[in-house]
């Protein structure tokens, strides 16, 4: 591998990163703007953060968002893990290909379609839209991400560990809880964090399936922006960016740490 960076590489990396992150950096910078005008720099200030946290409507929306994310991520993790186990372990059931396709479809499905179809379902079933319909919608679209993360761990799982447990007198169910679950726990946790952050910043699907009294933070921000961007919005968005970043870092670190550990074990096996 070439260690030194050619000018071409330098330029393309700089441009690429700038393209990705310049808008976000701009947003964060302007969230510390003292001026009331969003695009005019008027000195450093944190007053918009204070204003944002004092805005009751904004805080209510944030609380709804966190509750939705916590509940939907947890349930999606259970469903996603079960789906992953079914896909990896029971390779011979009828319609497995269809099932795995159906698990992954929401990954690539346009959110508008997911949102709209769920809305149609809720209307047809006569369910009043509100907090719980958002939760259900979020479970639906985040569980496939959990399934992908857990599945990739299960594929490398040494099934002789489970056989050894059963050989030593452990029933299959107990084996799952005492052997399988503790070993794949880091990936399940990573899946949960991923589901949590996805739910946290979803706008489209929540928009379709929310009802009166259940406004999530992204919905609130979007509706406020339509009336004009205020520095307050910049502040709350910066907080959101920070939360999502932290979540993603935790998720990928816990996966990475396990990968390194497993690589080391594999190395030790060979040695």
């Amino acid at each position: 591998m070439n260690r030194t960076w050619s000018p071409y590489n330098k330029i393309s990396v700089t441009l690429g990163l700038a393209f990705l992150y310049l808008p976000i950096i701009l947003l964060i910078v302007y969230s510390f703007n003292a001026s009331k005008l969003v695009t005019v720099w008027g000195g450093f200030s944190t007053k918009w953060y204070a204003a944002a946290f004092a805005n009751q409507a904004l805080m209510d929306a944030a609380w709804v968002t966190v509750r939705v994310a916590l509940i939907s991520a947890t349930i999606a993790t259970v469903f996603g893990t079960l789906a992953a186990i079914a896909l990896v372990r029971y390779t011979k059931f009828r319609g497995r290909l269809l099932f795995s396709g159906m698990i992954y479809a929401p990954l690539v499905m346009p959110e508008v379609i997911t949102g709209l179809s769920l809305l149609l379902l809720f209307v047809a079933a006569g369910i009043d839209r509100g907090f719980w319909t958002i939760v259900i919608a979020h479970i639906t679209f985040t569980m496939c991400f959990v399934a992908v993360v857990v599945q990739s761990r299960l594929i490398t799982f040494d099934t002789s560990l489970e056989e050894a447990a059963q050989d030593l007198g452990c029933t299959p169910l107990n084996t799952f809880f005492t052997i399988t679950l503790p070993i794949i726990a880091p990936s399940i946790f990573a899946g949960w964090v991923l589901a949590f952050t996805l739910s946290l910043d979803d706008l489209v699907i929540a928009q379709f399936n929310s009802g009166p009294g259940a406004t999530t933070l992204p919905m609130k921000i979007f509706s406020q922006v339509r009336l004009g961007v205020t520095p307050e919005i910049n502040a709350i968005c910066s907080v959101l960016v920070a939360l999502v970043t932290v979540g993603l870092i935790i998720s990928s670190l816990s996966l990475k740490r396990n990968e390194i550990k497993r690589a080391r074990e594999a190395e030790a096996m060979r040695a």
């Binding site: 040494d158 002789s160 560990l161 056989e163 050894a164 447990a165 059963q166 050989d167 030593l168 007198g169 452990c170 029933t171 299959p172 052997i179 503790p182 070993i183 074990e265 096996m269």
Partner: peptide, 20 residues
């Protein structure tokens, strides 16, 4: 008879020691 009821034990090629 299922494996967890048999009075035999096995030593696995990969050793299958529980890592946790």
């Amino acid at each position: 008879m299922p494996p967890y009821q048999r009075p035999v034990n096995m030593m696995f090629q990969s050793y299958a020691l529980f890592p946790h």
